[in-house]
Structures are given as structure tokens and as C-alpha cells.
């Protein structure tokens, strides 16, 4: 998993590339990385999954843990551009009831300011 970031209007856009899975962890997990950003004061985070090839059960746990940590601090964590098939799985597992998922980055960015 490779992470690069951009920032737009105080929103941290996290471009994730590769796979989020148990067997690929090196030193820092996605959740730990998000916690570091929260400690730096970031509160609006958009995870861009456009270049994510694969997520396993560990990866889902990491996304949920990141969501909880962000929201508990009064922040917002949202997802954008996940594949249609992954979205279907998120629907079946009711993850879409909790996570905010968008197709379009601009719409996702605007949603942070609508609340």
C-alpha cells in the first residue's frame, strides 16, 4: 500500500495505491497513519480508493477503525471512487450504512461543507 496526499480547502485527500491487506503490512497500518494525521490536527479526510486493487478483512477493519477515530474527534472521514464490486460488498455487509461513499471527488469534497 502506497499513500500520497493532497489538500483542498482544509480537506486531506489520501490517495491510496495497491492493496490493503494483512500480509502486506510493513511498519505503519492505515489506521495508524490516519491517527498521525489526526494528531496533526487534520479533521476532514477523504480516502481515494481509485487505485486500490484489493481489500481483505483486515483492510476493512482498518477503514472502520480510521472512521471511528476521526469521528470521535469531531472529524469526518469519507471514501471516494471505490470499485462497483467493492461497493456491492459494502452494501451486503451494511458498511454503506456507516461509511459515506462517493463516486465523484468534487461531490465528496463539497459534502464536507454541506454539514
Amino acid at each position: 500500500m502506497v499513500i500520497s496526499t493532497r489538500e483542498k480547502n482544509d480537506i486531506l485527500i489520501v490517495d491510496i495505491e495497491g492493496e490493503i491487506k494483512r500480509s502486506d503490512i510493513t511498519d505503519v497500518t492505515l489506521h495508524q497513519w490516519i491517527k498521525q494525521q489526526l494528531e496533526r490536527g487534520k479533521r476532514k479526510i477523504l480516502l481515494n480508493f481509485e487505485k486500490v486493487d484489493f481489500i481483505d478483512s483486515f483492510g476493512v477493519g482498518e477503514i472502520l477503525a480510521s472512521y471511528i477515530s476521526t469521528n470521535n474527534l469531531g472529524g469526518k472521514l469519507k471514501l471516494v471512487k471505490i470499485s462497483k464490486k467493492l461497493f456491492l460488498i459494502f452494501q451486503v455487509t451494511m458498511l454503506t450504512k456507516v461509511l459515506e461513499i462517493f463516486d465523484d471527488e468534487q461531490v465528496a469534497l463539497e459534502s464536507f461543507f454541506k454539514e
Binding site: 472502520l64 460488498i89 451486503v92 455487509t93 451494511m94 458498511l95 450504512k97 456507516v98
Partner: peptide, 11 residues
């Protein structure tokens, strides 16, 4: 709202 055991099994 989320059953993590179930999600894990599905994945």
C-alpha cells in the same frame, strides 16, 4: 450497525 465478525467472514 456493523457486524464486524460477519464482514470478516464475507471478505
Amino acid at each position: 450497525q456493523v457486524d464486524l465478525d460477519y464482514i470478516k467472514l464475507v471478505f
